[in-house]
Amino acid sequence: MKTIRTLIVDDEPLSREELRHLLSEYEDFDIVGQASSGEEGLEQALRLHPDVLFLDIEMAEMNGVELANALQQLKKVPHIVFATAYPDYAVKAFRLEAVDYLLKPFDEVQLVETIKRIRKIESGNGGENQPAQKANHLGKLAVENEETIIYLSPQNIDYCFREGKETKICVGEHCYSSKQTLKELEEKLADYSFFRTHKGFLVNLKRVSALVPWLNGAYQLKIQGGRVEIPVSRNYVKELRHRLEL
């Protein structure tokens, strides 16, 4: 897996720490530096040669937009992800060809999409070569069942959930046990139609048959051919509907 050198530039220590903590969940993202100002960010970018900058906009002296403009002069221009509490800079971010635009407080679902976008770009040609690679790779998920290793096709998996210290991977009425975390499974299944509906559930969207209102703005998903109802946190409903609906 390619290591993605990452620099965080933000004048708020708590925001830097929160983003550092969230990014630490992704093994391929190596945080090579943190800067508390635009000037320090420019100095570190020149010295550390990051692949991507997570960049605040509202900073004293040199702000994030000015820093992003300055970085365009580099021979190898890092990818920019603006991370800000202000939505008003989206047009400027678009003009600077930013990879993404994250709003504070950070939404983990949106960050997952940002991570996928960065990985796709870093894989080369915006991912144009990926279909050919997939054609030569069976893409089976290995799970241990007693003394046998079972290989599951991702398309056949209905959902995964966390139970105690184990993760359950469910196909139809049968659920296999795995020592992999949901985060690890989410990364392995990133090229398939899986979505984190809740901190404890990962769902194959191609197996969803209905979305049912539940309590306090939350929903439940129904899976094709099954009686299981899977919780959907209200923070994830908007992105879920965007992924599901035409």
Score class of each variant (00 low, 15 high):
residue 5 R to G: 04
residue 5 R to K: 13
residue 5 R to C: 05
residue 5 R to V: 00
residue 6 T to W: 02
residue 6 T to C: 04
residue 6 T to F: 02
residue 7 L to P: 02
residue 7 L to G: 01
residue 7 L to K: 06
residue 7 L to R: 06
residue 8 I to Y: 02
residue 9 V to L: 06
residue 9 V to C: 01
residue 10 D to F: 03
residue 10 D to S: 02
residue 11 D to C: 04
residue 11 D to Q: 00
residue 11 D to F: 02
residue 12 E to V: 14
residue 12 E to F: 08
residue 12 E to P: 07
residue 13 P to C: 09
residue 13 P to G: 11
residue 13 P to L: 11
residue 14 L to P: 10
residue 14 L to I: 14
residue 14 L to H: 14
residue 15 S to M: 11
residue 15 S to C: 15
residue 15 S to T: 12
residue 15 S to I: 10
residue 15 S to F: 10
residue 16 R to A: 08
residue 16 R to H: 09
residue 17 E to N: 14
residue 17 E to G: 10
residue 17 E to S: 14
residue 17 E to T: 14
residue 18 E to W: 08
residue 18 E to T: 14
residue 18 E to P: 06
residue 18 E to V: 15
residue 18 E to M: 12
residue 19 L to P: 01
residue 20 R to A: 12
residue 20 R to F: 09
residue 20 R to S: 15
residue 20 R to W: 09
residue 21 H to P: 09
residue 21 H to M: 14
residue 21 H to S: 14
residue 22 L to G: 09
residue 23 L to P: 00
residue 23 L to K: 01
residue 23 L to C: 06
residue 23 L to Q: 04
residue 24 S to R: 07
residue 24 S to H: 07
residue 24 S to F: 05
residue 25 E to Y: 13
residue 25 E to H: 15
residue 25 E to M: 13
residue 25 E to R: 15
residue 25 E to C: 12
residue 25 E to S: 15
residue 26 Y to Q: 01
residue 26 Y to K: 04
residue 27 E to S: 15
residue 27 E to L: 13
residue 27 E to T: 13
residue 27 E to Y: 11
residue 28 D to R: 09
residue 28 D to S: 13
residue 28 D to W: 08
residue 28 D to Q: 12
residue 28 D to C: 11
residue 29 F to H: 03
residue 29 F to V: 00
residue 29 F to P: 05
residue 30 D to R: 12
residue 30 D to C: 12
residue 30 D to V: 10
residue 30 D to S: 13
residue 30 D to Y: 11
residue 31 I to V: 06
residue 31 I to E: 05
residue 31 I to W: 06
residue 31 I to K: 08
residue 31 I to P: 02
residue 31 I to Q: 02
residue 31 I to N: 03
residue 32 V to K: 01
residue 32 V to M: 07
residue 32 V to S: 02
residue 32 V to E: 02
residue 32 V to T: 09
residue 33 G to Q: 05
residue 33 G to L: 00
residue 34 Q to R: 08
residue 35 A to L: 07
residue 35 A to F: 07
residue 35 A to N: 04
residue 36 S to V: 08
residue 36 S to N: 09
residue 36 S to H: 08
residue 36 S to E: 13
residue 36 S to P: 05
